[in-house]
């Protein structure tokens, strides 16, 4: 599968990260793995760019984080969706559905129902 353009992804990165955390708390590396797995490796972003998004979403109150100790003994920061984050994801999902239906209709040359 072709890797999606970075610029195209950037605008949706926050939504992608929120969606990756919808299944449960995870640390940065696991978030990236989840994005890869669920997108079928379509998203080809530098891994480091996910961290500013995680920090931004935490600052906005959509994520919370806590430090744990991994099996390796390393300190690990684990992120989880907050109540507000879950709400924001649901909202963004609805907007995205509308948007993609409109684009699909546009590209197919038909009027949406």
């Amino acid at each position: 599968m072709l890797g999606m353009e970075g610029e195209m992804l950037k605008g949706h990165l926050d939504m992608i990260v929120l969606a990756a955390l919808a299944s449960g708390p995870a640390h940065g590396y696991a978030v990236i793995e989840e994005i890869r797995r669920r997108s079928g490796d379509a998203f080809n972003l530098p891994e480091g760019t996910v961290y500013p998004a995680l920090h931004r979403l935490e600052e906005a109150g959509l994520l919370s984080s806590r430090w744990t100790t991994a099996e390796s003994g390393r300190k690990r920061r684990v992120y989880a969706l907050t109540k507000r984050g879950t709400g924001a994801l649901a909202e963004q999902r609805a907007v995205w559905k509308q948007f993609s239906a409109a684009i699909a209709g546009l590209l197919a040359g038909r009027t949406p129902a």
Binding site: Y29, G48, Y51, S72, R74, K75, R77
Partner: peptide, 9 residues
């Protein structure tokens, strides 16, 4: 700490 954890993993 966060970046080191990521990179070692």
């Amino acid at each position: 700490q966060e970046v080191e954890d990521h990179l070692w993993e």
